[in-house]
Simulated scan of single mutants.
Amino acid sequence: MKVDLGDLNAFVVVARARSFRDGARLSGRGASSLSDAVRRLEEQLGVRLLNRTTRSVVPTEAGEGLLARLGPALSEMEAALDVVNGFRGKPAGTLRLNVPVSASRLVLPAILPPFLAAYPDIRVEVISEDSFVDVIEAGCDAGIRYDERLEQDMVAVPIGPRVQRFATAASPAYLARHGRPEHPRELLQHACLRGRFSSGAMTHWEFERDGERVRVDPTGPLIVGLGGGADLAVDVALAGTGIVSLFEDWLRPYLKSGALEPVLEPWWQSFSGPFLYYPGRRLVPAPLRAFIDFIKQAPDGANPKSPASPSPKAP
């Protein structure tokens, strides 16, 4: 059976986006063109691949099976064609990154502007989400995550600051009314602004000092989804409602201005910085090779210099 590769690619785009409109936006094709392509594919295969409603598009069981096998294959084909990029004076194409919200806020702003200036023919597409995904299945070239969440078959390259800390803070008004805790367990008597993972699990607050580790599960008036809801938690803390726990770098502007004051700072726990990761079992696209070479020059993420000539090979 001879199937048009363009129709297969249209199906993958729509199935991943769960929407013809979003698929059109991501692919640069018209929604009607994608709809026609999927319909042709279904007619040729003799099976429905997508269940369509006015609000959503969901793959059928047959569609899910096809997507699971087809997504990686198309990504490999795209990477194979990208080998031609290695013969260009400057790499070109799209680099798709799947990153947590914290990385899009705290890591990439120092790296992307000089990278894009050094490689004007590369376009970077960033998908920010805090759930751990298969980067190939998600249609991305690479992701950013922390080491405890990396799969063993992934190649990892340090990116951004190598040491970070979680910080707890509250407004001066809140501390004036409720007092300042001296030990992490005292947080159980305070209003704490909590975060929840996309899996539904609540975050624990962990502290460490002089070899003593303390893990607390405080309560409070607000729970936000991690990543996208963090700014809301900060705003509520600024209003004097409770104590917030977040990346120190995220809270630093407020700590510096005095809008928030550090709480339990001697207990703030350090952890290793994030990694750029990508599958070691596939060809590395030229835009990703250029990005890897670029960040290796400045592992702390602080204004890396552009390479004189990009290396044709990734580590």
Score class of each variant (00 low, 15 high):
D4T: 02
D4W: 04
L5Q: 09
D7I: 07
D7S: 07
L8I: 07
N9F: 08
F11T: 00
F11K: 01
S19T: 02
S27R: 00
G28I: 04
G28D: 01
G28W: 02
G30V: 01
V38I: 07
V38P: 00
E42P: 06
E43S: 14
E43K: 14
L45F: 07
R52C: 06
S56V: 13
T60M: 05
E61L: 14
R69M: 12
L70G: 09
L70I: 09
G71S: 15
P72R: 13
A73W: 11
E76N: 07
A80N: 00
L81C: 02
N85E: 10
G86F: 09
G86L: 14
F87S: 11
G89K: 11
L95Y: 02
R96L: 00
R105E: 15
L106S: 03
V107E: 03
V107G: 05
V107P: 01
P113I: 13
F115G: 01
L116M: 08
R123T: 08
V124C: 03
E125V: 11
I127W: 10
D130Y: 04
S131P: 00
F132Q: 05
I136M: 10
A138Q: 06
G139P: 01
D141A: 13
G143K: 14
G143I: 12
I144F: 12
I144D: 06
R145V: 15
R145L: 15
L150N: 09
D153N: 06
V155G: 08
A156M: 05
V157Y: 12
V157I: 15
V163Y: 09
V163N: 05
S171M: 11
G179V: 03
G179I: 03
P181V: 10
P184G: 02
E186F: 05
H190K: 15
H190M: 15
R196E: 13
A201M: 13
H204C: 12
E206M: 15
R209G: 08
R209T: 09
D210L: 12
D210C: 10
G211V: 07
E212T: 11
V216E: 04
P218L: 07
T219Y: 11
T219Q: 14
V224E: 13
G225L: 15
D231C: 05
A237H: 03
A237L: 03
L238R: 06
L238G: 01
A239P: 02
G240C: 06
G240H: 04
T241G: 04
G242P: 00
I243A: 02
D249S: 14
W250P: 00
L251Q: 06
L251H: 04
Y254L: 02
S257Q: 05
P262L: 09
V263Q: 10
L276H: 10
Y277R: 08
Y277A: 14
R282V: 15
L283S: 13
P285D: 07
A286C: 05
A290I: 05
I292M: 02
I292Q: 01
F294E: 01
I295K: 01
P299Y: 12
N303R: 11
K305S: 12
P315V: 01
